[in-house]
Design a protein around this nucleic acid. Structure first.
Length: 815
RNA sequence: GGGCGAAUGGCGAAAUAGGCAGACGCACAAGACUUAAAAUCUUGAGAUUUAUAAAAAUCAUGAGGGUUCAAGUCCCUCUUCGCCCACCA
């Protein structure tokens, strides 16, 4: 028996597909479109098994719908901006342009070797000026619509390199290059007003029935709409008010101090009143890594205090990093008796703890820990005795009546900080003019090109800031000397709309609206679960903005989403920095693309985490070889397989085989269509091949085995396309299997193995049931494990099926 | 600290809707072919006990309890692991 030569077969078909542009797509109006999108990779240099898994799932989907005669769009591109390229430039003295180019070259080759059915004519690179020009264009459109604003925000700062550090560039609280301790620095930064869309992003989830519940719930928690109150406290000695946010107005009488976030601009505003400001300032700029340090830190603002507007009590003000500037108003009223974090802070700084809610059932010792549950109000003036959950509303109304606060809705979702003090990204197309302020670059002047000549090695501070040619520019409004913005954009912007660019790659306009509206929305999006909140939320936001610009019709970009589980090695995620990458190259060399593809799908269900192992690889290899050998068997070239003249056996086996075939087609079709359960789909085909294999070939076969064999090849085509194309050709077909019609199943043939039987209870006919053919009619009286309850159900509900084993009915399923 | 998810043989995993737990594979064992090995083919197998001509009984889906004629699946309590986020007021 000849072994199958995967190397030649795979090369042959990859070249054919490429040459005849089998996977290039056009807007065909007579066919239903299907947009299958996989998350575009960062070109780090090598494909790892996580990529292989992601893209194989995507390719099976694309190939399946192509065979279902849909007009499929299946594109691929490169998320080419970002920090690693810049780090490579600094460390290895290689220019990001060159580094990215060679990485893409390598990875593209790997993708092509795997036989993915991409339309490469639509390939995009986000670092291409033809692409990022439109980032800038969108940015200006958003600026015009008031969705862009500037605000102070803190960054991690290295004093010695004079540069902003990303989390990735920090190890043990020190700079990756010079080991200097990092500190915090306030910078004026660019933001996008994603919070304007917070409500719509939340409500839009109703349209996303094709998304995993897990992702929806994660996004909901991320946006986190909360109802609370803003209450103004007056600062003693100063004629200023300080606004706090709380969700617990019922605890207003238990407030014993205020806490202001150390990053809050208000501290700057009142610094002349703070007696110990130099100490406070030191605290503000210190690097407080409260993730590792669970101990509460903070400092009292001496010389000022706040007055509770309702009780007129005078209370101290602290600053502490346990209060985030991003949430609420960035200032909280602390109720140590009823909030554990406040309690811990109060204990550390010896602040009084005032109990205002008592549990109705348990005795709670407030000196041991905070009581955060509901209860009865005490020490709360006229509100004593009211249940705390009711008091929330009662006190809210009272506060509003007094005119010192109002009910507000807040989101945890923060506005999107999009500026980066980096070189390798899209330049923000803004100009700073002394006379006119911030002026957008005119659309005609786009793109603002990223200069290529940069000194990476000796560079201090932001690399763009040193490039005088880039910085110096005339103001587009008044013409005087002005300075270009040197911040670049967050790379999440690149990936927020790339799926639209695939629909139409156009040098003159961002995209052709008609083409985009033909292909969008994406029918199936596939990518890692780690993008549940950031990328998948930013994209939704961006799409809604584009909709409001009148460029797209729909509200949501992705109809169905599959978040595939990670591929891990010994339980930890594969990453280049951890040096635990499994590259597909060796497997491709040893077993070929088809086996690699089959194995990664068969090893685990797509949604589940897959801890890497080679176990099972040989099984997939053997399976493909089996299919290959079957080609000879069905062509009756082999004498090895025994034939029998017993017509009865042949007939029985033929029916068995026919039913198995239809069942398999049904199962595989549904597994792919419904839940993308690709591992069980493959199992099912393997089972059918086992039955076909044991089926004794006979001259009376009537082409039965050929018929089953052809359907096996068709079913396998999305998974192992090369070998299937080759067999398909050898079977005498002229058309590509990749575009051939997917097999159909007949429900009647599947049901042929069942019969309908009457149900009798105590001798009376009670209805009919469907049972397997080898079951016998029986009297329910004799049934084990049955009581009156069931017989009552029988009268009310239809009986669909019952389970009949070893001459006993063990159960009835009623519906 | 918060959120989400998971736990089934030696291993990866199946199991519409509560209805024969372990499909399909891996690894393993025996046999066939072979000088031999590999490859391939055939067969076997959750565990334990009894029996060994077949077979039978009991125990088994992280732990403990509950609902049900029937629970991997539903409810309660707990344990462990993974992922995402970071004091969310």
């Amino acid at each position: 028996m000849k072994k199958y030569n995967y190397f030649d077969i795979e090369k042959k078909w990859q070249n054919k597909w490429k040459k005849e542009k089998v996977f290039e797509s056009n807007e065909l109006l007579d066919k239903k479109k299907y947009y299958c999108l996989v998350m575009l990779p960062y070109p780090s240099g090598d494909l790892h098994m996580g990529h292989v898994r992601n893209y194989t799932i995507g390719d099976v989907v694309a190939r399946f719908y192509r065979m279902q005669q849909k007009n499929v769009l299946h594109p691929m591109g490169w998320d080419a901006f970002g920090l690693p390229a810049e780090n490579a430039a600094i460390n290895n003295k290689i220019h990001p342009v060159k580094w990215i180019k060679q990485n893409i070259f390598r990875m593209k080759k790997q993708l092509q070797n795997l036989g993915f059915s991409y339309d490469w004519s639509r390939e995009i690179k986000t670092c291409d000026p033809k692409y990022y020009k439109w980032n800038q264009w969108f940015f200006i459109k958003m600026w015009d619509r008031g969705l862009v604003f500037k605000k102070n925000a803190y960054v991690n700062w290295c004093k010695s390199c004079k540069t902003v550090l990303a989390n990735e560039q920090i190890s043990d609280n020190t700079c990756w290059r010079c080991n200097t301790n990092i500190s915090r620095k306030k910078l004026n930064q660019w933001f996008l007003k994603i919070t304007d869309y917070a409500d719509e992003l939340l409500n839009g989830h109703k349209q996303l029935s094709g998304w995993p519940k897990q992702v929806i719930s994660m996004q909901k928690k991320w946006i986190n709409k909360t109802y609370g109150m803003e209450i103004s406290f007056t600062l003693s000695k100063i004629n200023k008010k300080i606004k706090i946010f709380t969700t617990r107005p019922d605890t207003l009488f238990g407030v014993t101090f205020l806490v202001i976030s150390p990053e809050h601009d208000f501290i700057d505003e009142i610094k002349s009143y703070i007696e110990n400001y130099s100490e406070v300032e030191m605290y503000i700029h210190s690097n407080r890594n409260n993730i590792l340090n669970k101990d509460k830190t903070g400092i009292k603002l001496n010389g000022i205090s706040a007055i509770n507007p309702l009780t007129n009590e005078n209370i101290p003000i602290y600053t502490s990093d346990y209060v985030s500037v991003e949430h609420g108003t960035g200032i909280i009223m602390a109720v140590p008796a009823h909030d554990q974090r406040d309690w811990e802070f109060a204990k550390k700084f010896n602040i009084p703890i005032k109990e205002v809610i008592k549990s109705e059932t348990n005795f709670v010792d407030i000196s041991k820990c905070a009581y955060e549950d509901v209860g009865i109000l005490i020490n709360s003036w006229q509100f004593n005795g009211i249940k705390s959950d009711e008091a929330v509303n009662i006190i809210s109304r009272w506060v509003e009546k007094k005119g010192v606060g109002k009910k507000v809705v807040k989101f945890k979702l923060k506005d999107w900080l999009v500026s980066r003090q980096r070189y390798w990204g899209t330049p923000i197309p803004m100009i700073h003019c002394k006379k006119c302020g911030i002026v957008a670059v005119s659309e005609k002047k786009l793109p603002v090109l990223l200069p290529e000549k940069i000194n990476f090695v000796d560079g201090y501070g932001s690399l763009l800031q040193q490039n005088q040619n880039f910085i110096n520019v005339k103001c587009p409004k008044c013409g005087i000397d002005a300075k270009r913005e040197t911040d670049t954009m967050d790379t999440f912007i690149d990936s927020s709309w790339y799926y639209l660019r695939y629909c139409d790659i156009n040098d003159n306009i961002v995209f052709d609206i008609n083409k985009v509206n033909y292909w969008m929305p994406v029918d199936q999006y596939i990518g890692g679960i780690e993008h549940a909140c950031m990328h998948l939320l930013y994209s939704r936001f961006w799409y809604k903005v584009i909709r409001d610009l009148g460029l797209v019709k729909h509200d949501e970009p992705f109809t169905n989403l599959l978040t595939q589980g990670m591929v891990t090695l010994n339980g930890t995620a594969m990453s280049k920095s951890k040096k635990n990458i499994i590259s597909p190259d060796e497997m491709l060399k040893k077993y070929g693309a088809d086996t690699t593809r089959l194995f990664i799908l068969f090893a685990a269900p797509p949604k589940k985490q897959f801890n890497w192992t080679y176990c099972g690889l040989m099984g997939c290899w053997r399976f493909i070889n089996r299919i290959w050998q079957l080609l000879d068997i069905v062509n009756n070239r082999s004498k090895k397989y025994v034939s029998t003249n017993n017509d009865d056996i042949i007939k029985k086996e033929k029916i068995k085989l026919l039913i198995a075939m239809h069942k398999t087609i049904k199962k595989v079709t549904e597994d792919i269509k419904k839940e993308l359960q690709l591992n069980t789909a493959i199992s099912c085909i393997m089972k059918l091949v086992n039955i076909l294999y044991s089926y004794r070939y006979h001259s009376n076969d009537d082409g039965m085995s050929l018929k089953v064999y052809e359907s096996v090849i068709l079913l396998m085509a999305p998974f192992t396309p090369h070998v299937c194309e080759e067999i398909w050709e050898k079977l005498g077909h002229k058309k590509y299997i990749s575009t051939y019609t997917w097999p159909t199943f007949d429900e009647n043939i599947i049901n042929e193995s069942f019969v309908e039987l009457p149900i009798q209870i105590n001798g009376k006919l009670r209805g009919k049931i469907t049972v397997s053919k080898n079951a016998k009619e029986c009297d329910i009286k004799s049934v084990v494990g049955m009581d009156n309850k069931i017989s009552i159900q029988l009268q009310n509900k239809k009986i669909l099926k019952f389970i009949y084993i070893k001459n006993k009915i063990i159960s009835i399923i009623a519906k």
